[in-house]
Amino acid sequence: KLKCQHCNHLFATKPELLFYKGKMFLFCGKNCSDEYKKKN
Score class of each variant (00 low, 15 high):
residue 4 C to E: 00
residue 38 K to E: 12
residue 25 F to W: 11
residue 18 L to R: 08
residue 30 K to A: 09
residue 32 C to Y: 04
residue 6 H to K: 01
residue 40 N to E: 08
residue 11 F to E: 02
residue 37 K to Q: 14
residue 1 K to W: 01
residue 19 F to L: 12
residue 15 P to W: 01
residue 15 P to C: 02
residue 24 M to C: 12
residue 29 G to A: 11
residue 13 T to G: 12
residue 7 C to V: 00
residue 30 K to R: 10
residue 19 F to V: 12
residue 30 K to G: 11
residue 17 L to S: 15
residue 12 A to T: 09
residue 14 K to W: 02
residue 13 T to A: 08
residue 26 L to W: 09
residue 31 N to K: 14
residue 31 N to G: 11
residue 25 F to S: 10
residue 35 E to A: 11
residue 22 G to V: 02
residue 2 L to I: 09
residue 13 T to H: 10
residue 34 D to T: 05
residue 4 C to Q: 00
residue 7 C to Q: 00
residue 25 F to M: 14
residue 13 T to I: 14
residue 10 L to I: 05
residue 26 L to V: 14
residue 11 F to G: 04
residue 23 K to A: 10
residue 12 A to L: 06
residue 10 L to D: 13
residue 14 K to G: 04
residue 39 K to L: 06
residue 2 L to W: 06
residue 15 P to S: 06
residue 24 M to S: 13
residue 36 Y to Q: 05
residue 21 K to R: 11
residue 1 K to H: 03
residue 24 M to W: 09
residue 12 A to H: 05
residue 21 K to Y: 07
residue 3 K to V: 05
residue 36 Y to S: 05
residue 23 K to W: 02
residue 23 K to I: 05
residue 2 L to Q: 15
residue 37 K to L: 05
residue 12 A to Y: 03
residue 9 H to L: 09
residue 13 T to Y: 11
residue 8 N to M: 12
residue 23 K to R: 07
residue 26 L to D: 09
residue 37 K to M: 03
residue 5 Q to G: 10
residue 16 E to V: 06
residue 12 A to D: 10
residue 37 K to E: 14
residue 8 N to W: 04
residue 25 F to D: 11
residue 16 E to H: 02
residue 23 K to N: 13
residue 9 H to A: 13
residue 21 K to L: 12
residue 27 F to H: 02
residue 36 Y to E: 05
residue 13 T to Q: 07
residue 17 L to W: 15
residue 21 K to M: 11
residue 36 Y to D: 01
residue 10 L to G: 14
residue 40 N to R: 10
residue 2 L to R: 13
residue 31 N to T: 08
residue 40 N to C: 05
residue 19 F to D: 15
residue 30 K to S: 10
residue 39 K to E: 12
residue 18 L to A: 11
residue 29 G to H: 02
residue 26 L to G: 15
residue 3 K to Q: 11
residue 8 N to G: 12
residue 29 G to V: 03
residue 18 L to P: 02
residue 11 F to R: 03
residue 13 T to S: 04
residue 40 N to K: 06
residue 3 K to P: 08
residue 14 K to F: 02
residue 37 K to H: 11
residue 17 L to N: 15
residue 8 N to Y: 02
residue 36 Y to M: 07
residue 37 K to T: 07
residue 18 L to K: 09
residue 26 L to C: 13
residue 36 Y to K: 01
residue 23 K to C: 04
residue 28 C to T: 00
residue 15 P to F: 01
residue 18 L to Q: 10
residue 8 N to I: 04
residue 19 F to S: 14
residue 15 P to H: 03
residue 9 H to N: 12
residue 20 Y to D: 11
residue 23 K to V: 07
residue 24 M to T: 15
residue 40 N to L: 03
residue 34 D to H: 06
residue 13 T to R: 07
residue 39 K to R: 13
residue 6 H to R: 11
residue 3 K to D: 03
residue 10 L to T: 08
residue 26 L to T: 14
residue 34 D to Q: 11
residue 3 K to T: 07
residue 14 K to Y: 01
residue 18 L to S: 13
residue 27 F to T: 04
residue 28 C to R: 00
residue 20 Y to L: 13
residue 18 L to G: 11
residue 17 L to Y: 08
residue 39 K to H: 08
residue 22 G to W: 03
residue 24 M to Y: 03
residue 34 D to M: 07
residue 1 K to T: 07
residue 12 A to I: 15
residue 2 L to D: 15
residue 32 C to R: 00
residue 21 K to P: 06
residue 35 E to G: 12
residue 12 A to S: 08
residue 7 C to W: 00
residue 34 D to A: 10
residue 9 H to F: 04
residue 38 K to D: 06
residue 9 H to Y: 13
residue 25 F to E: 10
residue 8 N to F: 04
residue 28 C to S: 00
residue 17 L to G: 10
residue 7 C to T: 00
residue 8 N to Q: 14
residue 19 F to I: 04
residue 30 K to L: 09
residue 7 C to F: 00
residue 9 H to K: 14
residue 29 G to R: 06
residue 24 M to D: 13
residue 24 M to Q: 15
residue 26 L to F: 04
residue 8 N to D: 08
residue 4 C to D: 00
residue 17 L to M: 14
residue 22 G to D: 03
residue 40 N to V: 11
residue 14 K to R: 07
residue 28 C to Q: 00
residue 1 K to F: 01
residue 33 S to G: 05
residue 19 F to M: 03
residue 32 C to Q: 00
residue 27 F to A: 02
residue 31 N to H: 15
residue 30 K to P: 06
residue 16 E to A: 07
residue 6 H to E: 13
residue 22 G to E: 14
residue 15 P to N: 06
residue 18 L to W: 12
residue 36 Y to T: 04
residue 36 Y to G: 04
residue 11 F to H: 02
residue 21 K to S: 13
residue 17 L to P: 14
residue 16 E to S: 05
residue 36 Y to C: 03
residue 24 M to G: 09
residue 27 F to L: 08
residue 7 C to N: 03
residue 28 C to P: 00
residue 26 L to A: 14
residue 36 Y to L: 04
residue 7 C to I: 00
residue 37 K to W: 07
residue 34 D to G: 08
residue 6 H to S: 08
residue 38 K to Q: 09
residue 13 T to N: 05
residue 17 L to C: 12
residue 14 K to V: 05
residue 7 C to M: 01
residue 30 K to E: 10
residue 3 K to F: 06
residue 9 H to P: 01
residue 37 K to A: 13
residue 25 F to T: 09
residue 6 H to Y: 15
residue 3 K to L: 08
residue 20 Y to Q: 12
residue 12 A to W: 05
residue 31 N to M: 05
residue 24 M to P: 14
residue 13 T to E: 09
residue 19 F to K: 15
residue 25 F to I: 06
